[in-house]
Design a protein around this nucleic acid. Structure first.
Length: 652
DNA sequence: TCAATCCGTATC
DNA sequence: ATACGGATTGAC
C-alpha cells in the first residue's frame, strides 16, 4: 500500500531508520545508505527484503540490511519508497557471506548480491510454496565410507553435530553421488542443513537422484541457471522459507540460504566452470570455504583428482585427508599403461597398437570401451602432420587456422596466409587439424571395429549412461557416459599432447583431472579393466595416473607454485584495461608493503594486463587497496574501466 | 549586477 | 547516472 502523499508520511515508531544497500555498481557507493521507514511500511520493512528507494534523484532497487534507531547521517533522510515484497530473501548469514566474498575479491556488496539472490518472479512468489515436508527419512545405514581411512570418523563427526573439514580423494569406480548423499543425510539427521556445489547439470542430476534415494523425497532442491526464472525463484524461495534443509546446485547455489548450516560440499573443485564469469569473479570453492568458516560448518572437497588449492588446505592443516589405503586403491583401480605417440606404430584408426589391442580385448569380453579425445579446436589449431609441432605464423608467431579449400593456412592473429608453410622442426610441408574431432574419430573407429556400435558424447549431445556390452563410446572430457554397471573394459586417452602442451599454469593438474574422470569409470584391473594413455610415461601427470595418486601431483604442483610465486601460494590480482586506465588505478592504490608488479602484457585489442603479487597474509590488504582505488576512480568518473580479478584462473 | 553555464561533488 | 551548489563568464 503506497502512501498517498509525501506530506502524510511519518516515521515508524520503533527503529525508524532502515540501512539499505542500493543496487548501483559504483565502487565508491559501496556502503549502506540510511532511509526513514514510513509508518505504513513498518511491518513489511524487515531486514532482508527488497526495497525501492529514491537515490540521487532516481528510483533504484536495494536490499534492506537492518533496522536501527538512529542514523549517523548528518543531513535529512529520505523515506523508503516501497517494499517490493515482504519476502526476506537475504538472510543475515548470507549477507555476512556476501560481505566477506566482496571483501576477498575487491568487489562491491551489490555485485555479490546480484550473484547470490536470483531475480524476483512475482508469480512464483504468490503461488504459495507447497514443497512437501516429507516425514523423517530412513536412518542412515552403514556405508561404503569405511573404505577410506578416516571415512567413518568423518561421518560420525557430522552426525554428532561437529564441523569436520576434509579433502576427499574418491576411489576409482566410486559411486560419489551416493557417498555425498550419505554425508548430507547424516548432517540433516544432526538437525542441520547442507549445501552442495556441482560443476554442471549432469553431475547435478546424479546427486539429485542419489538424494531422492538416500535422503528421501522432498528434502532438497536443486538450483541451476538452466531452470527458467520462475522455477529457479520458486526453489530458491523453498530454501529461504526453510522448507528444505538441503540445497544442491551449480555456482550460484553456494550462496543459497539454508538455516543452521552443518556442511558445505563441492565435487570436482578443479572444474573451471566454478569460476564465476561476472564481477567480482568469485570461485565457488572459495565461497563455500568462507561460508564454512563463518558458519562453523563442516566442509568436504571431493573428487577423483585433487586441485592445488585443495592440497594447500591439507598443507596448512585447515582440512584433513580422506583417502583410501594404497592397497584398496590398487584393488579398485584399472591397469594403466602409457604408450608412445609414434606415427610409425599405428594400427587401424590412428590407434597405437597397444591401445587397439586393449580395445579389441575389452570388446571381445563384451564390455564397453571409452575413448577420450580433446575437444576440437581446443588449442593449437593446426600442427605439422609429420611431427605434430604446432604450426605458427612465420611473421608474428600467432596460431594458424585450418587450411582452406585452396590449401593455404591463415594466421589467426595477423591474417597473413602462408602458402608455402614448412615445419621449423622437421621441414614437413603437410598440416593437419591438431585435434581430430570426436565425430571423425568415431567414424575411424567404426571402420576399425566392424560390427561394434560406436557412439559419441560431446558438449552438444551428452550421453548419460552406456550399457554393459560391447560398445565404443567416443567422448570429449566432461561428457563421458557413466556405465550402467560394471565399468568400461578399456579406456583410451588419445591426442593427449593437446592437453599437455597447453600454455597454462594448470595444464598438468587439468590434464590429470580429465584423465582421472575417464579412468575412474573403468573396471578394476582384477576384472580386466585397462587404461591406455597415449603419452610419454616419464611425464608427471602420466605417473600420477599410473599410480592413481592425484595427491602426489598436487603436492608437486603446489611446491612449484611456491617456487614460482603463483596462487594459491601467494595472492594475486590482475588488472585489465587500457594502459592509461591501469596505470591510473595503480597510482591511486595504496598497495600493501612488498607488493610486486608484473607486466604489462598485451591482453587483446587495446587492452593490457598488470599483475600484482603479495604474500597470502597481505591478501585482504591488497583487495582493500584495489577496491578503494577503484572507488577513487569511479568517484572521479574515470571514463575507462579496469577489470580487477583476484586470483584469476587463467594466469598464463 | 544578474543570469546562464560550467565544473565538481554527493548521492541517505 | 543525476541533481545540486558554487564558481565563472558574459551582457546589461
Amino acid at each position: 500500500m503506497p502512501p498517498r502523499s509525501r506530506a502524510e508520511r511519518e516515521p515508524a515508531e520503533q527503529s525508524p531508520v532502515a540501512r539499505v544497500c542500493v543496487d548501483v555498481g559504483l565502487p565508491h557507493l559501496d556502503r549502506p545508505f540510511d532511509y526513514l521507514v514510513p509508518a505504513q511500511l513498518d511491518v513489511a520493512a524487515q531486514p532482508g527484503v527488497r526495497v525501492r528507494v529514491r537515490f540521487a534523484g532516481q528510483l533504484v532497487d536495494g536490499y534492506l540490511l537492518e533496522r536501527v534507531d538512529t542514523s549517523g547521517h548528518a543531513g535529512p533522510l529520505a523515506y523508503l519508497e516501497r517494499v517490493v515484497s515482504a519476502e526476506r530473501v537475504l538472510s543475515p548469514a548470507v549477507l555476512a557471506l556476501c560481505r566477506a566474498v566482496a571483501k576477498r575479491y575487491a568487489g562491491t556488496l551489490a555485485d555479490v548480491l546480484r550473484l547470490a539472490v536470483p531475480p524476483r518472479h512475482a508469480a512464483a512468489e504468490k503461488a504459495a510454496g507447497d514443497v512437501l515436508a516429507a516425514g523423517a527419512p530412513a536412518p542412515p545405514e552403514p556405508t561404503a565410507w569405511s573404505a577410506y581411512r578416516a571415512g567413518d570418523g568423518y561421518l560420525s563427526a557430522l552426525a554428532d553435530g561437529r564441523a569436520p573439514r576434509a579433502v576427499w580423494t574418491a576411489l576409482p569406480g566410486e559411486d560419489w553421488p551416493v557417498r555425498l548423499a550419505e554425508a548430507v543425510t547424516v548432517t540433516v539427521h544432526s538437525g542441520r542443513s547442507a549445501v552442495v556445489a556441482l560443476a554442471d547439470a549432469r553431475d547435478l542430476g546424479r546427486l539429485d537422484a542419489a538424494l531422492r534415494t538416500v535422503l528421501g523425497e522432498g528434502r532438497h532442491v536443486a538450483l541451476s541457471a538452466a531452470l527458467g526464472p520462475a522455477e529457479r525463484y520458486r526453489r530458491f524461495l523453498a530454501a529461504v522459507r526453510g522448507q528444505v534443509p538441503v540445497v544442491i546446485g551449480t555456482r550460484a547455489a553456494a550462496f543459497a540460504p539454508v538455516p543452521d548450516l552443518g556442511l558445505v560440499a563441492i565435487w570436482d573443485d578443479g572444474d573451471d566452470l566454478y569460476a564465476e564469469p561476472r564481477a567480482p569473479y568469485p570461485h565457488t570453492r572459495e565461497v563455500l570455504l568462507t561460508r564454512a568458516q563463518l558458519a562453523g560448518a563442516g566442509a568436504l572437497l571431493g573428487g577423483y583428482a585433487r586441485s592445488v588449492e585443495a592440497e594447500q588446505l591439507l598443507d596448512t592443516g585447515w582440512a584433513r585427508e580422506l583417502i583410501a589405503s594404497r592397497e584398496t586403491t590398487r584393488n579398485r583401480a584399472p591397469a594403466v599403461s602409457p604408450t608412445a605417440d609414434d606415427p610409425r606404430d599405428q594400427s587401424a584408426a590412428r590407434l597405437p597398437s597397444l591401445a587397439w589391442r586393449a580395445a579389441r580385448d575389452a570388446l571381445a569380453a563384451g564390455t564397453p570401451v571409452l575413448v577420450q579425445v580433446p575437444r576440437r579446436g581446443y588449442l593449437p589449431a593446426v600442427a605439422c602432420a609429420q611431427c605434430r609441432t604446432p604450426a605458427r605464423c612465420p611473421h608474428c608467431h600467432g596460431p594458424l587456422a585450418l587450411p582452406t579449400a585452396s590449401g593455404t593456412a591463415a594466421c589467426r592473429w595477423c591474417g597473413r596466409t602462408s602458402a608455402g608453410y614448412a615445419c621449423p622442426a622437421c621441414g614437413g610441408r603437410r598440416l593437419r587439424a591438431a585435434v581430430v574431432g570426436a565425430r571423425r574419430t568415431a567414424e575411424e573407429l567404426g571402420r576399425a571395429f566392424p560390427g561394434v556400435p560406436v557412439r559419441t558424447s560431446g558438449r552438444d549431445e551428452v550421453l548419460a549412461t552406456v550399457p554393459d556390452e560391447a560398445t565404443v563410446v567416443v567422448a570429449t572430457p566432461g561428457a563421458e557416459p557413466v556405465p550402467d554397471k560394471g565399468g568400461y573394459g578399456a579406456v583410451l586417452l588419445l591426442d593427449t599432447w593437446a592437453l599437455l602442451t597447453r600454455a597454462d599454469l594448470r595444464a598438468g593438474e587439468e590434464t590429470l583431472r580429465r584423465w582421472l574422470a575417464a579412468a575412474a569409470l573403468a573396471r578394476p584391473a582384477g576384472q580386466g579393466g585397462r587404461v591406455v594413455v597415449v603419452a610419454d610415461g616419464g611425464l608427471a601427470p602420466v605417473q600420477a595416473l599410473v599410480r592413481f595418486d592425484p595427491g602426489w601431483l598436487a603436492g608437486r604442483e603446489l611446491a612449484e607454485r611456491r617456487a614460482l610465486g603463483f596462487p594459491p601460494a601467494v595472492r594475486m590480482a590482475s588488472l585489465t584495461g587500457s594502459s592509461g586506465a591501469v596505470a591510473d588505478l595503480l597510482a591511486a592504490a595504496r598497495l600493501p608493503p612488498g607488493a610486486e608488479l608484473l607486466g604489462p602484457v598485451p591482453a587483446g585489442g587495446e587492452q593490457e594486463r598488470m599483475l600484482v603479487r603479495v604474500p597470502r597474509s597481505a591478501g585482504n590488504a591488497l583487495a582493500d587497496a584495489l577496491h578503494a582505488a577503484a572507488g577513487v576512480r569511479s568517484a572521479r568518473k574515470a571514463p575507462e574501466p579496469v577489470r580487477v580479478q583476484v586470483d584469476p584462473l587463467e594466469l598464463l
